[in-house]
Design a protein around this nucleic acid. Structure first.
Length: 439
RNA sequence: GGGGGCGUGGUGUAGUGGUUCAACAUGCGGCCCUGUCAAGGCCGAGACCGCGGGUUCGAAUCCCGUCGCUCCCGCCA
């Protein structure tokens, strides 16, 4: 017998159906039992007259909530029933997997345990509607991103996550034993995206895992996360990358709104609107002036940079003045950027780069890359790097590599921003942090 | 790596030096209820108040240490 989804029960009045799902609540009375069963599509009431089958009644009485059940019965209309005006009169029940009693916590209780405890029992936590929604939204968002890329002639790549040399200086790398030597977990697909430019692929994207060995204890950092990266050739400047990116992001919002807008409003109380294109832009120099004007005190060691407080201040400023959640901060000083960001021709210390700030949180970094071999080498040396370990990378720029640029974008941070989640642990399927390796 | 906060039955909280201070809610167990509906009623079990030390006649409550969690800074997506 085929399974009927709970949302489709009203199409099967007076028919025998099989439903499968989780026991949401059990109301065990003297002569009757009511089981509320839940599947991904909704909830329904199952009624059982104890006298009809005392043995079954006994089994039901022993059931713990959240048990996985298969039920067979007849769908009947019943105006009294508040759950959809129908119920299933139980004929047979299979306990597929009984939930132990008691549960570690009640996923549908009035209050929730603290997050760390919920992460211990993440699969119970994920049974909550709002969590199901978050990952439906993520699925739609990724699909929209891919659609947009494919409509613009991008090629999808999957670069290796095991590397022989660090892909960038700076962020800490995880080392792993690798036969007779030591390898690193990829901290970014950066160099491999650029290799695709050298390969003449012109436009590539990758959605994949990224590893950072930084011991960061914040609500927005993870040691493993999903990086959303793209790179495009034959650009004139970083402005081409930003112009692409804002349309790509607006498209993603549109698709998410179309599919989940009302549910997001119901469950998360967020009224989603696609961000207007173009996004506001501000150069780093202007940002510093603005911060001073609005009274944000940037620490002196940050004079070429922004700190998280400054990002939040900029975020709320552009929200207030332009009603926009996003802002590009452009033209970062070379001191604050990696060696491969291209410098402006007339201003030696300024890069053709940008960060995208969403609701005050850094969500992406991008730039035009330096594609001229000698210039790139000089910039690496200027950053204090030795050429030898990055020679493989430098070799990408020896035999006809077009001008290009791109960005790296944090998928979970994006979900945080879009859905107003206060902690990245809520925006990721399974969280990995310095002290969280399980489940 | 630096700093702040928190740590009480399974879970969420109350209690900030003493005499019912170990409470309330929820969950759990039992009983009651002719069909309930995020049911309701009654009864019951369940915590030596993270751990170790100290102050005190007396510590969940104050102090020190330690562990865990959390947030902020640094780093970044």
């Amino acid at each position: 017998m085929e399974r009927t989804l709970i949302k489709d029960l009203n199409k099967h009045i007076n028919e025998q159906v099989k439903v499968q799902g989780w026991l949401h609540t059990l109301r065990d009375q003297k002569s009757m039992q009511f089981l509320i069963i839940r599947d991904r599509t909704g909830m329904a009431q199952i009624a059982h007259f104890k006298k009809g089958n005392p043995q079954l009644a006994e089994q039901i009485s022993a059931l713990g909530t959240e048990s996985a059940l298969t039920l067979i019965g007849k769908v009947v209309e019943n105006e009294i029933v508040k759950l959809g005006g129908l119920e299933i009169q139980l004929e047979d029940l299979v306990i597929e997997n009984a939930a132990e009693v008691p549960l570690p916590f009640e996923p549908f209780g009035e209050y929730l345990p603290e997050q760390d405890f919920r992460l211990d029992w993440r699969y119970l936590d994920l049974r909550r509607d709002v969590n199901q929604l978050i990952f439906e939204v993520q699925t739609t968002a990724e699909q929209a991103m891919r659609e947009y890329w494919l409509d613009h002639n991008f090629i999808e790549i999957h670069s290796p996550k095991i590397m022989g040399a660090p892909s960038e200086s700076g962020a800490e790398l995880f080392t792993i034993p690798y036969f007779e030597t030591t390898a690193y977990l990829a901290q970014s697909p950066q160099f491999y995206k650029q290799m695709a430019m050298a390969a003449g692929y012109e436009r590539v994207f990758e959605i994949g895992p990224v590893f950072r060995a930084d011991p960061s204890f914040t609500s927005r950092h993870m040691t493993e996360f999903t990086g959303v990266d793209m790179e495009m050739s034959w650009i004139d400047s970083h402005e081409d990358v930003m112009a692409f990116m804002e349309r790509w992001l607006a498209y993603t919002y549109e698709k998410v709104i179309e599919k989940h807008g009302s549910e997001i409003e119901n469950l998360l109380n967020v009224k989603l609107e696609a961000p207007a294109v173009p996004f506001p832009r501000i150069t780093m120099a202007e940002a510093h002036e603005l911060l001073e004007k609005i009274g944000y005190d940037l620490p002196p060691e940050k004079k070429h940079d922004l700190d998280p407080g400054a990002e939040r201040a900029l975020g709320s400023h552009f929200k207030e003045t332009q009603g926009h959640d996003y802002v590009f901060v452009t033209e970062w000083p070379f001191e604050a950027r990696p060696f491969y960001h291209m410098l402006k021709p007339d201003e030696e210390n300024i890069t053709r780069s940008f960060d995208l700030i969403g609701k005050g949180l850094e969500v992406a970094t991008g730039a035009q890359r330096e594609h001229r071999y000698e210039v790139l080498k000089t910039q690496a040396v200027a950053k204090g790097l030795t050429v030898e370990p990055i020679q493989d990378y430098l070799n990408y720029f020896r035999y006809g590599t077009p001008p290009h640029g791109g960005f790296g974008f944090g998928l979970s941070r994006f979900l945080m921003i879009m859905l107003d989640l206060s902690n990245i642990r809520e925006a990721v399927y399974i969280f990995r942090g310095p002290t969280r390796l399980t489940p």
